[in-house]
Design a protein around this nucleic acid. Structure first.
Length: 524
RNA sequence: GGGCCUGUAGCUCAGUCAGGUGGAGCGACGGACUUUUAAUCCGUUGGUCGCGGGUUCGAACCCCGUCAGGCCCGCCA
């Protein structure tokens, strides 16, 4: 059974209506690693829908979190003054609006692109509106008890002056602010510089520390499931203390599931603080949403993913396409048998089907149609040799029977992304089509050289269009002692310096005839 | 020091919760097709399940230990 379906079944045993939570701090570009959390939650929502139970995805934007430091992508002189302030209260790097929205906007665009449906809870706003007031009161009333629990579970004693609420000072900063006195709803504080003042908890004059904020929101949002990053999962970590603190706020803890991080191949864990990230938006600029979803659906959450935006992305797309074919030819009609009444082989097939279904951007309930039938590889070739979309569509009209006047919007969409990919730093060099610089005759047999020379002669007088080039190739093969396959391999090896390649007729037509002739002249 | 996750075919992963003859895809190899190929179809190959013990009639799976990689144990999220 697919892991998302396993979770859905467990949730179904607990009730028929669930709130699935996900939360990411918009302190920087929201990368593919962060997206795993939201997509994991989305898959579980969809699995719930499949078996007929209600599930709502709630995204908590941690906009009340303070800016921890000046990240590498920020200007030091501009942002050092804002360290410690809530993300929602500091200016955006581009000068428009606030900091958190600057990073949330592209993230939401990516989610919409991915077909994720969610409700946003803005934590800064929630504090302002008093949504956390009850929890804050509970936390302060139970200060001793909570301190004992955290100290015991995390194996680290908290200081005597520990207070379960972090107030902001008169500059809006939370770092290094000590609570000196509390008389509900007022909290008195002192900064490291000796400044004193007071803020109103009911008006969002600060926030709960993370270890309390988490279980507090479980209660007021009625969360029944949350996937959390592996950094939270160790004994004594925030998930662990949350389990014990949750009852104090009035609810049992939600069901949870740890997920592993996504690593950038060869560069370590994706982390915006280190700058080695691919944002969700960036990835969606170059591949369609179903490929990005497939990245997540194909592997259990406990596995780390070594994300390779180059060749790895090509194989991911290939794998997706093969699965798409298989799905439409044999998997879509598969009966969803229970684990008990099916063999492991059947289970593996059902898993594959689910990996595909859950990768679809469209919601359950709509039909999964036959796909585009045009492979990514072919598309990458076409985009490389046809610089104009009109020419590209003409080519597809001949080979794939598409309607040039009304091309499928998904096709146009994919072409756009493919062109972005080609123009990006990620597109792998060995998938790029380049005419060889020269031909090393020693690498070829005599009959191959004869063939290439004849071919060179045969194309001298033709018009440089796809049909005539093809005719010339065929004609040359028919008079050659080479088998067609060998002949084509010779052409690929000599012209492109590779064993295989895209359709030669279309490719050569896009290149300059004289360049081909010059190249072939080099043979002796 | 304490803990979590991962380790299964050359590669990417299922299978571990519910112990019962080790699976899939890719790759590689072979064949078919024979005037196109980053093609398709058919077939073959492939693994002391990280390592060592234990429990069991039977262990990839449960238990103990161990090695390797990653991560956590902060008034950070």
């Amino acid at each position: 059974m697919h892991w998302a379906d396993v979770i859905a079944e467990r949730l179904a045993k607990q009730g028929d209506s669930h709130v699935i939570a996900t939360g990411i701090t918009p302190s920087g570009p929201i990368h593919v690693g962060n997206m795993r959390e939201v997509l994991t939650a989305d898959l579980i929502v969809r699995s719930c829908e499949r078996i007929g139970i209600d599930a709502e995805l709630v995204y908590i934007a941690d906009t009340a979190d303070p800016l921890r430091k000046v990240y590498p992508f920020l200007k030091d002189d501009e942002y050092s003054q804002h360290v410690g302030k809530a993300l929602a209260t500091i200016p955006s790097p581009d000068g428009n609006g606030n900091y958190s929205n600057y990073f949330l906007t592209p993230f939401f665009e990516a989610l919409n692109d991915l077909g994720v449906e969610y409700r946003v809870v803005d934590s800064y706003q929630s504090y302002q509106e008093g949504k956390y007031t009850t929890a804050a009161k509970t936390a302060i009333d139970n200060r001793e008890k909570i301190r004992d629990i955290i100290s015991e579970i995390s194996q680290r004693p908290l200081n005597d002056d520990w207070f379960p609420y972090n107030p902001v000072d008169d500059e809006g900063k939370m770092h290094g602010v000590k609570v000196t006195h509390c008389e509900w709803p007022w909290i008195e504080w002192q900064t490291e510089n000796g400044h004193t003042g007071r803020t109103n908890i009911e008006k969002g004059g600060g926030k709960l520390p993370w270890r309390l904020d988490w279980p507090a929101r479980w209660d007021w949002l009625n969360i029944s499931f949350e996937a959390y990053g592996k950094d939270h999962s160790a004994a004594g970590g925030s998930w662990d203390t949350g389990q014990h603190l949750s009852p104090i706020f009035g609810s049992p803890p939600p069901m949870g599931m740890m997920y592993e991080w996504i690593y950038l191949k060869g560069k370590g864990a994706m982390a915006s603080s280190k700058g080695n990230t691919v944002s969700g938006k960036e990835l969606l600029d170059i591949v369609p949403p179903e490929i990005m979803r497939f990245l997540i659906t194909r592997v259990k959450p406990s596995k780390h993913i070594d994300f390779d935006p180059g060749e790895g992305l090509i194989s991911l797309a290939d794998e997706y396409e093969r699965l798409e074919q298989k799905y439409h030819t044999k998997l879509s009609t598969l009966e969803h048998k229970s684990v008990e009444e099916s063999s492991r082989k059947e289970q593996q097939l059902i898993d594959e089907a689910r990996k595909f279904e859950l990768a679809q951007g469209i919601r359950s309930g709509t039909s999964y149609d036959g796909g585009l039938g045009i492979s990514f590889s072919h598309l990458s070739t076409l985009c490389q040799i046809k610089s104009k979309n009109a020419d590209l569509l003409d080519s597809l009209a001949r080979t794939h029977g598409i309607d040039v006047t009304q091309p499928d919007s998904r096709l146009v969409d994919r072409v756009g992304r493919m062109r972005n990919w080609l123009n990006s730093e990620w597109f792998p060099e060995n998938a790029r089509i380049k005419l060889a610089n020269s031909i090393d005759s020693r690498q070829f047999e005599e009959n191959e050289i004869d063939f290439l020379n004849t071919f060179s002669d045969n194309i001298k007088e033709i018009r440089w269009i796809e049909d005539e080039i093809l005719t010339a190739i065929r004609g040359t093969i028919s008079t050659s002692e080479l088998a067609p396959r060998e002949a084509f391999t010779s052409l690929y090896r000599s012209l492109l310096d590779r064993e295989r390649g895209p359709k030669l007729g279309a490719l050569l037509a896009e290149l300059e005839k004289q360049d081909i002739l010059d190249l072939l002249d080099g043979i002796n």
